[in-house]
């Protein structure tokens, strides 16, 4: 790890330079206060301070829909070129996003390596950006409010400059190709960083007590709260689609034209009714209450037992996007008997 500084006025030169390392993708403001993660050519569009894009970066690794295998005019192909996004530089990743990336890596790069994910992952450059939380952020409670690995570079905004963390050989390549943009960090930069860190830790207003939460959930597995939640949840799947760690997918075959066939992979959500439906008609999670409960248990109980951490990074996207106003933090506070 190496720590540098960059003057704030050089940001657009830096972003131009990043284009040499792949398609530059950054949050852009689509309408007031609404941000989307998009490939940009005009670097002035980048809004890295935006707290959450509608869809998280997972779409840069696995498209919402792509062809895995196909047969066309008798030719069989399994190269999944449809999901090949080429080298991508993701600018504006926050600490929670990078933690989510680590969770996706755990899933897709362990046991059987997912070749479609891996191809994009290997060529993804992550340039993080220090954020300041709003009322929907609870990464502090999830222990994901800071990050010390799995990114290439990280920019933390200070007064008129950035503290630049270089954390990979690829990050080092970027610095070496653009040495005129960077200077060694000074003691004053470091001091200001530490002050900002303190200020940021104090800025969180939403918190979730995760003490012994897996066992608390085990104890509460038959609680009426899940039935109540099932009445409120529409099972629309919005929370899963916008969740940076939700990565379930569905596979189905299609025949787009005569003598051609495709095996298509699409994002899926455990909240959908067909999710646990098997041949013969048996549905292992037929009620909305079963499905919404499953999602909460998966994130905060089962994943913790398996990997020692929740599969929630506290980004607040599900809170922002739930059409019926379900707030994950309030649900767990209620389960704990605190609300």
């Amino acid at each position: 790890m190496q720590t540098l500084r960059m003057n704030a006025g050089l940001l657009s030169s830096f972003l131009e330079a990043l284009k040499a390392f792949g398609t530059l993708v950054a949050p852009v403001e689509r309408s007031p206060g609404v941000f989307a993660l998009e490939a940009i050519d005009d670097v002035s569009q980048a809004r890295p301070e935006a707290l959450r894009t509608i869809l998280p970066f997972k779409k840069l690794l696995l498209k919402p829909r792509f062809v895995m295998l196909e047969r066309r005019q008798g030719q069989y192909g399994a190269d999944g070129a449809d999901n090949d996004l080429g080298p991508v530089v993701y600018f504006g990743a926050h600490s929670c996003d990078i933690h989510a990336l680590r969770i996706l890596d755990l899933l897709y790069l362990s046991d059987y390596v997912d070749p479609y994910y891996k191809r994009n992952r290997d060529r993804l450059t992550v340039v993080g950006y220090g954020c300041m939380p709003d009322g929907k952020c609870f990464c502090q409670s999830m222990d994901t409010s800071t990050i010390d690995k799995d990114f290439d570079m990280f920019l933390t905004p200070l007064d008129g400059r950035y503290l630049v963390t270089v954390n990979s050989a690829r990050g080092d390549d970027i610095v070496r190709a653009n040495q005129h943009l960077f200077q060694p960090a000074t003691r004053r930069d470091v001091q200001e960083y530490l002050e900002r860190l303190k200020e940021r830790e104090k800025a969180f207003t939403l918190s979730l007590d995760v003490t012994d939460l897996p066992y608390v959930l085990e104890l509460k597995k038959d609680d009426p709260v899940w039935e109540e939640l099932g009445k409120k949840c529409l099972c629309c799947g919005s929370c899963s689609m916008v969740c940076p760690t939700c990565a379930c997918f569905n596979v189905r075959d299609e025949c787009p034209e005569e003598d051609s066939a495709q095996r298509v992979r699409t994002w899926d959500a455990c909240l959908y009714r067909e999710y646990a439906l098997v041949a013969g008609g048996h549905n292992f999670r037929a009620s909305r209450a079963d499905r919404v409960k499953n999602r909460y248990y998966h994130k905060q109980e089962a994943f913790v037992r398996e990997f020692g951490m929740p599969s929630c990074v506290g980004c607040g996207r599900c809170i922002e996007n739930c059409p019926t106003g379900i707030n994950v933090v309030e649900v767990f506070q209620y389960v704990r008997g605190e609300a």
């Binding site: 046991d111 569905n250 596979v251 999710y275 646990a276 439906l277 098997v278 398996e306």
Partner: peptide
């Protein structure tokens, strides 16, 4: 056990019960 399975390799999530993948 039977569950709905798509990928069979612990990725797609359909057969997950808690974090146990029936397939894996």
């Amino acid at each position: 056990l039977e569950r709905r399975m798509e990928c069979g390799i612990g990725k797609c999530g359909h057969c997950a019960v808690g974090y146990t993948f029936t397939c894996l």
